[in-house]
Design a protein around this nucleic acid. Structure first.
Lengths: 359, 359
DNA sequence: TTTAGCACTTGAAATGCCTGAGTGCTAACT
DNA sequence: AGTTAGCACTCAGGCATTTCAAGTGCTAAA
């Protein structure tokens, strides 16, 4: 209420920044409200506890700090964390050892995107000590670019669909024997008629046309097309995978009791979380940097008290997924950000360079 | 002590059985130790609380009951539960509604085993209110029965492997353009040389022989074979999936604090649980009935206090997986058993009949 | 403008008491 | 001999009370 900035958020004095930063970092480390006295031991702050108290009172007025109760220390508010990650944070330098670990672990899995992602979240979780997750975003337009039919025995075959670089398969069985010639013809027709179409664009007339072209073997068309539609539809739902759910329990203050249950339910239902990834800039143009959602900023109500840090994964400039961690608001931001940044880039490079080399 | 059965487990009197059964069922329902007085209200028991106390004391001597502390009621011991599920339990009859729900939900997913399993565990979890899990057991001998190569563009192709009825794919990219003729020849060679072999049986001399046969395009062999080996090796690890982990929290007495963490870790690591499925009779001959592991009977130490109920899933007589639920020892056995029995059979039928009909 | 000092607030932990449920045992009852 | 009623005893859980320590805001002095 003095003459200086009372509530109006103009600019923070250097000392206020120092104090806020110290409080946040102390709180991240200790998990408890931090008091004025404790801060005097901080080497970057050279004033008495009384002065600090005054500053803290003002910071609280400005909305950067909160007080759980009268006689407790201060705790950073969401606005405080936001300011912190936006302008106060020191960027964490991964150690040589950490970089090496990320590199070698990733290298080993020179396989499909799916297993790379599995490795990546396992890494992310174990190295940050938070719950890690990877998402493949919901596709806007899912189409098959190529069909292939593999005969297994005389009455069954496997349909192979190439959807946006990912292979999906589906077994088709028939009561009567299928001729090799018929399946070959079916394959050709599928490739001619259905490539580039979404499930919604596969119409009855189109199917009837295909049946006509198949002639005597028209009975194959309906089950196959039905299978294709189902597969396409099943594909467009994004995917979400986790690792290190057990680490939520390391933060009982946050994920205790009901909250934990909500969180687990959130992970199980998946949909809400997928929406987070889809609704944000992931779909549209996006600078590809690390994203941070703190507390209420999250679209999912369950996730106040939590922070989501993630970074998109790109292949050939287009978005194919994201990897991140989720944890309590008081997470170790600088370390997590550095990790996720590096890891996501690593995955991107890995799948990118697969296009260039074969090894 | 007395003249009668003191500790020696000969045969239980009818009344003791009634009392034990009543105690177990009351405990399952209420989750609390049950006392002598409470039981007098049970209509199947027609004697005073004092008599019940005497009987309970003897049952405790015999090891079927336990006392948390002196002035608390009795709680069933693991031996008590075991006796209960083996000989006291009334078999639960699913209601028409329940059967209908199982049937229709399963029908909808007329797809691959994987998605059927997903549906099944979701159902199992929601209908029993416990955590459900499905396993595909570790295969003893993993071999590829058929290879197929799909060209996507001139420098990349997709390798399709048919492993025990399941399709696995792998992208292969080359720095130099691959001729159609070359990939066709490679496919033929793979089918000739590698079908029926495990990863361990693919030797260097064999690969060199293939390179010789490929002539000028020998450079393709090494990356492809390497990819095949990796895919086969990755396949043999069984798979495990869950649903309803959040339901553990409904039983805080059991899964509170450290225990919950242990459980989550168990679910995340997967290996230990897979071992349970693999080490039991699943691999060898097996009558295909519902299996019940109570408390310490479980091979995994984390799982005392828990019961695992599962039933194998078979296709054409051979084992392809299992589905079950895991929950506190005091779970509602009769209902869960009936559910899992029905559900597993349903899945078995579903994939079985897929071999007969096409629709 | 900073600092020292002091009175005040308040949650957490410790303590002690009480209650009620449930037992084991003995003695009476059938 | 088996069953029941009665009684003394035990113990966990709830409740109120106290104590403690941390931390604050404010005032007055430097």
């Amino acid at each position: 209420m003095g003459s200086e900035n009372s509530g109006s958020k103009r600019e923070l004095s250097e000392r206020k920044k120092q104090i806020l930063k110290a409080i946040i970092e102390a709180h991240i480390e200790l998990g408890e409200p931090v008091g004025s006295k404790y801060l005097t031991s901080n080497k970057h702050i050279a004033c008495s506890s009384a002065t600090i108290r005054n500053e803290m009172a003002e910071l609280e007025n400005m909305g950067y700090l909160e007080q759980p109760h009268t006689s407790a220390g201060r705790v950073p508010s969401e606005a405080g964390y936001r300011l912190y990650v936006d302008s106060l944070i020191d960027s964490y330098r991964l150690t040589e050892r950490e970089i090496e670990e990320l590199r070698t672990s990733l290298r080993k899995k020179q396989a499909e995107l799916d297993s790379i992602l599995d490795t990546a979240i396992r890494l992310a979780s174990s190295m940050t000590d938070y719950t890690a997750l990877a998402a493949k975003p919901r596709k806007v337009r899912v189409t098959v670019s190529h069909f292939e039919i593999i005969r297994t025995d005389e009455r069954s075959m496997i349909l192979v669909l190439l959807i946006g670089g990912i292979v999906k398969t589906r077994a088709i069985r028939s009561r009567v024997p299928i001729g090799d010639e018929a399946s070959g013809r079916l394959e050709a027709i599928l490739n001619k008629k259905l490539t580039g179409l979404t499930a919604a664009e596969i119409t009855m007339p189109l199917m009837m046309e295909m049946e006509r072209e198949m002639g005597a073997d028209e009975y194959l068309v309906e089950p196959v097309v039905k299978g294709i539609c189902e597969t396409i539809s099943a594909f467009d739902g994004g995917e979400l995978r986790f690792d290190g759910i057990d680490r939520l329990l390391s933060y009982p203050e946050v994920y205790g009791g009901e909250r934990l249950r909500d969180m687990l339910t959130l992970f199980e239902r998946k949909q809400d979380l997928l929406d987070v990834f889809s609704e944000t800039e992931m779909q549209t143009g996006d600078d590809g940097s690390v994203k941070i959602y703190i507390g209420r900023e999250n679209l999912v109500k369950t996730m106040d008290n939590s922070t989501l840090v993630y970074k998109p994964i790109k292949r050939g400039g287009i978005l194919v997924g994201a990897i991140g961690v989720i944890g309590p608001t008081r997470m170790n931001y600088s370390r997590v950000i550095a990790m996720i940044d590096h890891l996501s880039s690593g995955v991107s490079n890995l799948i990118e360079e697969g296009d260039e080399r074969s090894d």
